[in-house]
Design a protein around this nucleic acid. Structure first.
Lengths: 261, 261
DNA sequence: CCCAATTTGTTCGTATGTATC
DNA sequence: AGATACATACGAACAAATTGG
C-alpha cells in the first residue's frame, strides 16, 4: 500500500510539518484517542517539536484538511480529534476519480450490484419515522412536474429515498458506496438538467418501484425487497442507456464538491 | 449532498485560504487544466487574491494534502496539477472508515459482489506479460510454507493476483473498490499474522481457484471466469467466518497508512 | 564545477479578530 | 465587560532546492 513508507521505518527527507503530522497520527493511534479528545495546544506542540508556530499550524492544517481534527477557537478550543465527515470523504474520493472519467454505465453497473444487497440489509431496521419519510419522498414524485425545477426536485427526492436506506445500512462499506453513488448521480442529474428529456416512463417506473419497495419494507419481506431493488436498478440502467450520447464529457466536471467549480 | 454548500452559492464566512482553494479548483475545472499543467506561482497568486505569501502557501498546502497539486522548488518549479495518487485516496477513505469499524464479514460481503463482475470485465484485456505474472504469483503459493514469513508472503501474492486484475479493469469504480478491498485484507492479514492458524485447506482451495481462473482467462471464457471468481469468494468468505472471533477489535487500528502510526 | 537566478520553504515578530470563561 | 487563548493574516528576512549558463 503506502509505497513510500513515510511513517515509522524511514524518517528520510521529510518536511518538518509532515513529520509533525505523522507523529500526531502515530500518537493518536497508540494512545487510542477517541473523537472529541483534545490534542496538545499550539504552544505545547511548538516546544515538543522545537519549531515555530507557523510550522505547527501547517501541520494542524494538514490534519484538518484530511478531516482528522477539528480546530476551534477560544479557550477550551484548539485541536480535537474528529471523525472524518462523510461529505469530505466523498469529495476526496471524487477528486481521485476526476481524471478517471467514470461513465454512466460504470455507475449503474456498480449500483446494480450494491443496491439490492444494501436494501436487503436494511429490512427490519427502519423506524416508523423512516417509513413515513420514505412515503413522503415517494409521493412527492406522484404528480407530473410542472417545470424543470419541479422535475429536478423529484429526482432529488428519489435519490433521498435511496440515501435514507444507505444511512440505515449496518454495513459501513455498502453504506458509503450507496451514498457515494447517489452523490455521483445527483451531480449527473443536476448537470444535465437543462437538456434532460421528459422521460415520463422512467418517472412512472421509479414511482412504482418505490411504492412497492415501501410495501415490502413494511412487510419486512427481505427477498421481495432484494428482488424489487434489483429490477429497479435494471430499469434505471435501461433508461440511462437511452441518454448515453449526451454525457460523453467529463462526468464530474461540475458541482461544488469535486474540484469545486 | 454537500450539506454545507461551501462553494458557489454561499461565500459565507470562509477563511481566506479556503476561498483561494475553492477558486483554484473552480479555475482548474472551467479551464479544463490537465495533469502536469502549471498553476500561477506564489507571487502571482498573492497579487491575484490580494493576500500575503503565508495565506497563499496555506491554500497550496491544502491542495497538496488533497493530492490535487504537486509543489516543486527551483526555477521552472511551482505548483503543477496532479492526479490524486491511488495510495492517497485509499488512505483518506480509510481515515473515514476508521471509526466505522468495518468487520470481516462486511469486507467479504462486498468482495463477493464486486470481484466476479470485475473479473469478468478483465477478460480479453490481459497481455501475455500479465498472464505470466499471474502464473508466477499463483505458483508462488504452490509449496507448503516453511514459516510465518513465507506464509505471509504467499497471502500477499494471492492478493497481488487480485490487484493485477483490478488494475486492468476498465471500470474505474470497480477498479478502485477492488484495490481498496485488497488493501483492507492485506492489513487484516498482516495484523493477525502471529495468531493466524495454518488453514491448509484454505490455501489449497485458493491455489486451485487461481489456477482455474488463469486457465479461464487464457481461454477468454467470461462466463467461466465470473463463476469461478464467485465461488472463490464464497470459499474465502467461508474460511474467514472460521476466524470470526479473533478480529473483534478495530480492524483498522494498525498499518501505517491509516492514521499512520 | 561553480555561480547566479528563480522559486519555493521556513521562521520570526506583530497585529487583529473572535469565541469562551 | 474584561481577560484569556487561539485563529487569522501580514511582512520581512533568510534558507534550501533547482535550473541553466
Amino acid at each position: 500500500m503506502n509505497t513510500h513508507f513515510e511513517g515509522l521505518s524511514s524518517p528520510r527527507k521529510m518536511k518538518r510539518s509532515d513529520q509533525i503530522v505523522e507523529a500526531v497520527k502515530r500518537w493518536v493511534v497508540v494512545k487510542d484517542i477517541q473523537p472529541g479528545d483534545r490534542l496538545p495546544n499550539e504552544k505545547a506542540l511548538m516546544e515538543l517539536f522545537e519549531c515555530s508556530k507557523g510550522t505547527v499550524r501547517e501541520a494542524l492544517k494538514a490534519l484538518e484538511v484530511q478531516g482528522l481534527i477539528r480546530l476551534k477557537t477560544g479557550p477550551k478550543g484548539g485541536a480535537t480529534l474528529a471523525q472524518v465527515p462523510y461529505p469530505l470523504a466523498s469529495q476526496l474520493l471524487r477528486n481521485y476519480l476526476h481524471f478517471q472519467h467514470p461513465t454512466g454505465p460504470d455507475i449503474y453497473r456498480l449500483r446494480k450490484l450494491v443496491e439490492p444487497e444494501l436494501a436487503a440489509l436494511v429490512v427490519g431496521r427502519l423506524t416508523p419515522e423512516d417509513l413515513q419519510l420514505m412515503e413522503e419522498l415517494t409521493e412527492r414524485c406522484a404528480q407530473a412536474p410542472a417545470d424543470f425545477e419541479e422535475r429536478l426536485e423529484q429526482r432529488i427526492a428519489e435519490l433521498d429515498f435511496h440515501n435514507l436506506l444507505a444511512e440505515r445500512c449496518p454495513d459501513p462499506l455498502l453504506a458509503f458506496i450507496g451514498r457515494f453513488l447517489n452523490d455521483l448521480i445527483k451531480d449527473l442529474v443536476i448537470f444535465q438538467k437543462v437538456h434532460l428529456p421528459e422521460q415520463v416512463e422512467f418517472s412512472q417506473e421509479n414511482l412504482d418501484y418505490h411504492r412497492r419497495l415501501l410495501k415490502a419494507y413494511r412487510a419486512e419481506d427481505e427477498a421481495e425487497v432484494r428482488d424489487l431493488m434489483y429490477r429497479h436498478m435494471l430499469s434505471a440502467e435501461k433508461f440511462n442507456k437511452e441518454l448515453q450520447g449526451q454525457l460523453t464529457g467529463s462526468l464530474l466536471s461540475q458541482g461544488e464538491s469535486q474540484l469545486p467549480g
